[in-house]
Design a protein around this nucleic acid. Structure first.
Lengths: 195, 195
DNA sequence: TATCGTTGCCAACAAGCGTTGACCAACATG
DNA sequence: CATGTTGGTCAACGCTTGTTGGCAACGATA
């Protein structure tokens, strides 16, 4: 126990914060690069330049470490502020940035595919971030789930082929070409009438 | 060595063919369900009701077993025989059948995401099956790769969300709704002019 | 019947895994 | 200064992994 007040979890800076952060950083990298099984605690500890037992002390076990390391923020913009006819374009541009910016997204998918906790986390991201963001502009509320799923399918599909499987024809596609092709698709999934 | 003629690899039926097949069946199931790492040779051998050492004898090592167990046939129809304005619909229907029919596709993706040999195999499937099938009907040959990648991205994206991650809004989408939404997308990727 | 490749099981190996507990140094508090 | 808490290292545990080699039973051939 560290808390001084029981009701307020007042977090005072600990001397070990740097170590904790180093572990978390290394864990994120390893999980993203190798997936859950092959990202071993020993490898993570080595990257962080500490002893494997520290990982256990601070995060309990491997599952706890993953839970702590897999907090994701898609940083979705406020779509209500985007011109209605450019929503698709904005969406695909934002996600290309997120896929390419760091290994957060690739890592999340890599883990989610073979690990139930990872899949759960990805489902959380959907309901807590994607759904609300789209709710602001979705025409009919009862269609929100369907439309969000459709949009997600196209976005994650291109990400998978381009950045994880690195399928040459997908990876070689120029960014602007991806935007030109996918933007109308997303725009339709988001704003078109139910077919 | 089993071959009798050096030039012709004349395969005579072996007494162990049943065992070999049982191993391969079990391996396919395990790889599909658990991914490469968690599909252990011991578990596969137990499913096949034989000793783990038999797997090694007949397939060399785990990588060899995977190579033998991961031969995939998408059974793509002859698209040239399909009415041009129904290509998208036919495509999505065929792939929904393949995703749902057995665990071949889900397994392939599950392994490919965290295993390089699996990714390689999936890339092979693309160049050897998807590309040629689309070549028969693609308007401009120089655009074949791009269009095939786009189609692949939408198909694999929906499959991932619906059958692997089992994201509720995607999994709950009625089949005909998926067809109605995705068919126009695929039709456009396949036949529309370059945007 | 004697021979020899094939088929299968068994026990074991070395390596790697997640995890634990003992132990020491540094620090903050009385 | 004495004391308890925290940060960190080390060695080891029990277990699972892929993989290996020995050995017994079978089946075809001679």
């Amino acid at each position: 126990m560290v808390d001084t007040a029981p009701s307020e979890p007042q977090e005072r800076p600990r001397r070990s914060d740097a170590t904790r952060a180093a572990i978390l950083d290394a864990a994120r990298d390893r999980f993203a690069a190798d997936g859950y099984e092959r990202a071993t605690i020993r490898a993570i500890a080595k990257d962080a330049d500490i002893d494997p037992s520290m990982v256990m002390r601070y995060y309990g076990n491997k599952a706890g470490l993953f839970a702590a390391a897999s907090e994701i923020d898609l940083r979705l913009p406020d779509l209500a502020a985007v011109p209605r006819d450019r929503l698709g374009e904005q969406l695909i541009r934002h996600f290309l940035d997120r896929w390419e910016g760091d290994e957060t997204l690739t890592g999340m998918v890599r883990v989610a595919v073979t690990n139930e906790a990872g899949a759960e986390r990805l489902r959380d991201v959907f309901t807590e971030q994607i759904r609300p963001a789209l709710a602001a502009i979705c025409p009919a509320p009862e269609e929100l789930d369907s439309r969000a799923a459709l949009i997600g399918s196209q976005l994650v599909g291109m990400g998978l082929l381009r950045y994880i499987l690195i399928l040459p024809p997908a990876a070689a596609l120029p960014r602007e070409e991806v935007v030109a092709w996918l933007a109308p698709t997303l725009q339709r999934y988001l704003t078109a009438e139910h077919p």
